[in-house]
């Protein structure tokens, strides 16, 4: 087991100062997924290639001939990130290079069109890190529903609210029994940083699922982007954990939140996409949050 973690990084100031994502991105104001990318790259360092399918990051990285990135970024077709990364990883390994291959994909490119390639890569044991930043819709094309859009959320293709639940991507990944998988959230960059570090220290297919609030998509003011992420965790809507070789451990911020979750309304109220939610849907959402908390708590205790 090559589980070497830099335990020394306990606060943000300990994170490397080197920047691989410059400030000249083409992201919207208040974009949290671009913030996440910044920390991911700080953790990964310069010997890293990003493989990016069609998504907001295709635009955020900058427009030709400019770029906001200081690592190679390989842009590829929407469905193809995990497969392309597989080939790249095999090639580096064949050449004896230890370059990190990180697929950085949106939720649509992961749970919808890209899931076949993703499943294949994990089943094959590809040595790479797949990161899904989840803004819960198709941001690049103007906020249509994705399989990862939560129940009740209004998008441009679900103007009456999404009638079905968010696809449980993490359980799909878990079914592939990867050596490492984790959830993270843009509002907890240190937690994200550590998880990327740990993931990259392990051989095989690794997965990190980041909740990345998106002001235009979720319809909240740009300055509330960190607050929105915190509320997702505090209400137990989003649970931070890692699963190493099958063993689940709940991460600090969620440990407290799961014991006494803040009312779900705190999270939902500030988001235009949940406007006029009917009481039945809200009830269902509450139920889902509770069930999730219970399921994950049980798994950590080993009673599942």
């Amino acid at each position: 087991m090559t589980n070497i973690v830099e335990r020394s990084v306990t606060n943000l100031s300990a994170i490397p100062k080197e920047e691989y994502l410059y400030k000249c991105t083409s992201a919207c104001a208040g974009c949290s997924s671009s913030l996440c990318l910044r920390y991911v790259l700080k953790a990964a360092g310069p010997d890293t290639v990003l493989v990016v399918p069609a998504c907001c990051t295709s635009v955020i990285q900058g427009i030709y001939p400019g770029t906001a990135m200081n690592v190679p970024v390989y842009n590829v077709a929407f469905a193809a990130a995990a497969a392309c990364a597989s080939g790249m990883s095999e090639a580096f390994s064949a050449m004896g290079r230890e370059t990190n291959v990180i697929a950085y994909a949106g939720d649509g490119g992961t749970v919808d069109i890209g899931i076949q390639a993703l499943s294949g890569a994990f089943e094959r044991g590809t040595n790479f890190l797949y990161i899904c930043y989840d803004n819960e819709a198709y941001g690049n094309t103007g906020m249509q529903r994705s399989g990862s859009t939560p129940l009740g959320a209004r998008t441009t293709t679900t103007p009456g609210g999404k009638p079905t639940a968010k696809k449980d991507l993490d359980r799909i990944i878990a079914a592939h029994n990867p050596p490492y998988m984790a959830t993270a959230c843009s509002a907890y960059p240190l937690d994200l940083y550590k998880k990327v570090k740990k993931a990259l220290s392990i051989e095989g297919p690794k997965f990190i699922h980041i909740l990345a609030p998106c002001p235009p998509g979720w319809r909240y003011p740009t300055e509330k982007t960190v607050e929105m992420g915190k509320l997702a965790v505090k209400t137990g809507t989003w649970i931070l954990y890692e699963r190493e070789f099958g063993k689940l451990s709940i991460s600090g911020p969620s440990r407290a939140a799961m014991k006494r979750p803040a009312p779900l309304e705190d999270y939902i109220r500030g988001q235009g996409r949940f406007k006029n939610l009917d009481p039945a849907t809200l009830d269902l959402m509450r139920q889902q949050v509770r069930q999730n908390i219970e399921r994950i708590a049980r798994e950590e205790e080993g009673v599942c």
Binding site: Y138, T141, G142, Q144, T156, T157, P159
Partner: peptide, 27 residues
């Protein structure tokens, strides 16, 4: 959806949701 076609899909989704078009829309 895909740029620059998205408005077609979005408009149709709106018609279907509003009951102005009785088609089944498969997302």
């Amino acid at each position: 959806p895909i740029t620059p076609q998205t408005e077609i899909v979005e408009q149709i989704a709106e018609y279907v949701t509003a009951g102005d078009l009785e088609s089944r829309y498969v997302p």
